[in-house]
Design a protein around this nucleic acid. Structure first.
Length: 348
DNA sequence: AAGTCGGGGTA
DNA sequence: TACCCAGACTT
């Protein structure tokens, strides 16, 4: 209890003023929580403001097209969040009359809402006694109690959830949950935690045992995979080009890109031109093709590195999938493509 | 239980 | 570089 009161006391003095903290509207809390999954507040904040401006209510979001939602989400990453957000908005608007579920158990059934988000909404909006466990909470608890159970093991997940429930301030769970997260984000930071000014330092076991810098423990994840993308950038004499939507599973599902040939390694120009997939699309004898960037653009995701080359295809005449070059900005595209579009001049 | 899914910030 | 971020979902 002293633990909880210390944190809420610290929070009331040190908390940042954030737009979703001015409200307990479940729509706004839900939207902010989805956006902030695995995302820093500084990165998510402008997106939150864009979404609230474009979709002030869950009905506005429900009526939007998925493409429009993805376009506004462009650059934020983890695009399944945007698709699930839209699905759940339609569910809440059209099947629940615009009313969000008001218990942890029911919130958990919503697509895109897991244990953390259901706990956050239930405690913040409805004062339900459920504890959030996010990356901040793992770090604060692992350090304060000197727990070296890996936070991403099944045992660790159960252990930290149980401890978080015990520590929860049952009088004001919403404020407490936000307090411990804010404390992790600002005070008990991953690197260079501010132990000198910490209100919990007198009882922190990791500090006492000189283990602050080695907690929390995390199982190491699979190593990064390398992939090689060759994008075909068509440029017709009518200022049109070709883009395609990524379908099926994998990265950037639902986003648009230029026609892509993925190869198992970085190919020389001669090798790519001789590649069967390339030859099936382009008659090199009749169509001028030029390599845009000899040095591949390396696009780094958390779990794969994508080595990318762009090929400019001077194509005359029309094609069924052609769109005017200026229309590309209406489509959601990966940051990799957006960066190319920023520097490439179609000549329009 | 392990893999997959983005992009950006920090040291 | 390596790690992390108001995690959820699939295999």
């Amino acid at each position: 209890m002293v633990f909880a009161k210390t944190l809420t006391g610290w929070y009331l003095k040190n908390r940042r003023e954030l737009p979703w903290r001015e409200s307990s509207d479940p729509y706004r809390i839900w939207l902010s929580e989805i956006m902030l999954q695995q995302t820093r507040i500084a990165q998510g904040l402008p997106y939150y403001l864009k979404f609230i401006n474009a979709f002030p209510t869950v009905f506005d979001l429900a009526r939007a097209s998925e493409e429009n939602v993805l376009k506004l989400w462009q650059g934020l990453g983890y695009y399944s969040r945007a698709r699930n957000l839209h699905f759940t908005a339609k569910h809440v608007a059209f099947e629940l009359n615009g009313k969000f579920p008001n218990t942890y158990k029911e919130l958990l059934k919503l697509k895109g809402v897991g244990d953390y988000t259901a706990s956050a909404i239930a405690s913040i909006c409805y004062n339900e006694n459920v504890a959030v466990v996010d990356g901040n909470v793992y770090r604060v608890l692992a350090r304060f109690f000197d727990i070296d159970t890996p936070i991403n093991s099944s045992q660790g997940i159960k252990e930290f959830k149980g401890l978080a429930e015990e520590l929860l301030d049952k009088e004001d769970p919403g404020t407490y949950n936000q307090a411990i997260m804010e404390f992790g984000a600002l005070q008990c930071t991953p690197q260079l935690p501010k132990c000198e000014s910490c209100p919990l330092s007198h009882a922190c076991l990791a500090l006492k045992n000189n283990k602050v810098h080695q907690l929390p423990v995390k199982l190491k994840k699979a190593k990064v995979v390398k992939r090689y993308f060759n994008y075909l950038v068509y440029r017709s004499n009518e200022n049109t080009t070709i883009i395609e939507q990524r379908v099926g599973k994998g990265i950037w599902e639902g986003l648009y890109q230029f026609p892509l040939i993925e190869t198992p390694r970085l190919l020389t120009t001669g090798e790519l031109i001789a590649h069967a997939e390339f030859k099936s699309l382009i008659d090199i004898k009749r169509t001028p093709v030029s390599l845009y960037n000899e040095t591949p653009v390396v696009h780094k995701l958390s779990h794969q590195h994508i080595y990318t080359r762009f090929w400019i295809i001077e194509k005359v005449g029309k094609h069924p999938n052609h769109i005017p070059v200026a229309k590309i900005q209406d489509y959601p595209v990966p940051v990799l493509i957006a960066n190319f579009l920023k520097e490439f001049d179609f000549g329009d």
